[in-house]
C-alpha cells in the first residue's frame, strides 16, 4: 500500500505523459487508414472499423506527394554530402589548433546557429534570383548550408576532441604525414561522429520550410513541407491525404531517431548543452 502511494502516482504521470506524446502520432496513423465517412464524423472511432491502405497509393500517385518526397530526398542528400565535405576539415582544425582565432571562430559558428532565418531570407532571395537559381534544387541545397555547416562543425568538433591526440602523434612518429594521420587514424575513429553529423545535416534539409516557401513555386519542385502547407491552407482540407503524407514524411525520421537515440543525444548535448 505504501509502495502504491509512493510509486503509483509516478506510474500515473508516466502514462499521462506517454499518452500526450504518443496519442497524436497514433491518431495520425489511424486517420490515414480510415475511409472518408469515418474521418468526417462527429463521433470519431478510436480504431478504424476496417483499416484501408488505399490512401497511401492515392497520395503517392495522384497528388504531388511522391514527387515531393523525391524532391526532399534530393535536397536533403545534397545538403548532407556537401555539408560533410566542407565541415569535416574545419571541425578538425578547430579541435586541434588552439590559437586565439580558434575561439573567435567557435563563437562565430555558435552564433550562426542562433540566427532567425527570416533575417537572411530577403538578401538570399535576391542573390538566388540574380544567379538564376530560383526554383532549383541548388537554391535550397546552397542556402541550407548556411545553417547545416555551423551545426556540423560544432558537433563534429566534439567528436574529434574525444579522440586522443596521442594516437596522431604516434602515427606521425611512425612516419605518417599530418594528412596521412588524419586519414588513417582520425577519420576511422570519427566514423560514428560523421554518421551522426550526416543524419543531423540531412534532417536540416528534410525539415526546412521557410526558404523552400520563398524559392520554390513550381509544383514539380516542391518539397514535402510545402505540399503539406498547401494541403492544410485550403478550406476543404482532405485530412486523410494530409495524415498519410505526414506519416510518409515523418516515418524515416522517426526510425532514425529511435535507432540512433543514444548517439543523437550525445551529439546534441555535445553541441548544445556542454557548449
Amino acid at each position: 500500500m505504501r509502495w502504491l502511494l509512493k510509486r503509483g502516482w509516478m506510474y500515473a504521470a508516466m502514462v499521462a505523459v506517454s499518452a500526450f506524446a504518443l496519442f497524436p502520432v497514433y491518431w495520425v496513423v489511424i486517420t490515414s487508414l480510415k475511409p472518408r465517412s469515418e474521418i468526417y464524423t462527429r463521433t470519431p472511432d478510436l480504431w478504424p472499423s476496417d483499416p484501408q491502405w488505399d490512401q497511401y497509393p492515392r497520395v503517392l500517385g495522384e497528388g504531388h506527394v511522391g514527387r515531393a518526397l523525391l524532391n526532399s530526398l534530393i535536397v536533403a542528400s545534397g545538403t548532407m554530402v556537401i555539408c560533410l565535405l566542407v565541415s569535416a576539415g574545419a571541425a578538425y582544425v578547430l579541435a586541434r589548433y588552439r590559437v586565439r582565432i580558434t575561439r573567435i571562430l567557435l563563437i562565430l559558428v555558435l552564433m550562426t546557429q542562433m540566427f532567425p532565418l527570416v533575417v537572411l531570407v530577403i538578401p538570399l532571395f535576391v542573390t538566388m534570383r540574380k544567379a538564376g537559381l530560383l526554383g532549383t534544387y541548388w537554391s535550397l541545397i546552397i542556402t541550407y548550408l548556411a545553417f547545416s555547416v555551423p551545426l556540423a562543425i560544432w558537433v563534429m568538433r566534439g567528436f574529434v576532441l574525444s579522440i586522443p591526440e596521442e594516437l596522431e602523434h604516434a602515427a606521425r612518429i611512425d612516419g605518417a604525414t599530418r594528412i596521412g594521420a588524419m586519414w588513417r587514424v582520425v577519420l576511422p575513429l570519427a566514423a560514428p561522429g560523421l554518421a551522426v553529423t550526416a543524419v543531423l545535416s540531412f534532417l536540416e534539409g528534410w525539415k526546412e520550410f521557410l526558404l523552400a516557401l520563398t524559392f520554390i513555386n513550381d509544383e514539380d519542385r516542391k518539397t514535402v513541407p510545402l505540399v503539406l502547407q498547401s494541403f492544410v491552407g485550403r478550406g476543404d482540407t482532405d485530412w486523410g491525404a494530409v495524415m498519410a503524407t505526414s506519416v510518409l514524411y515523418t516515418l524515416p525520421v522517426a526510425i532514425v531517431f529511435v535507432l540512433a537515440r543514444k548517439h543523437l543525444m550525445t551529439a546534441r548535448t555535445a553541441g548544445a548543452v556542454k557548449g
Partner: peptide, 23 residues
Amino acid sequence: FGIAVLLPWAVPALAASAIWKWL
C-alpha cells in the same frame, strides 16, 4: 517511456502543425 517521449521530437514542424491542426 523513453522512446515514447522521444518520438514527438522526430516529427518535423510542418507535420506537427498539420497533425495538431487536425486534432
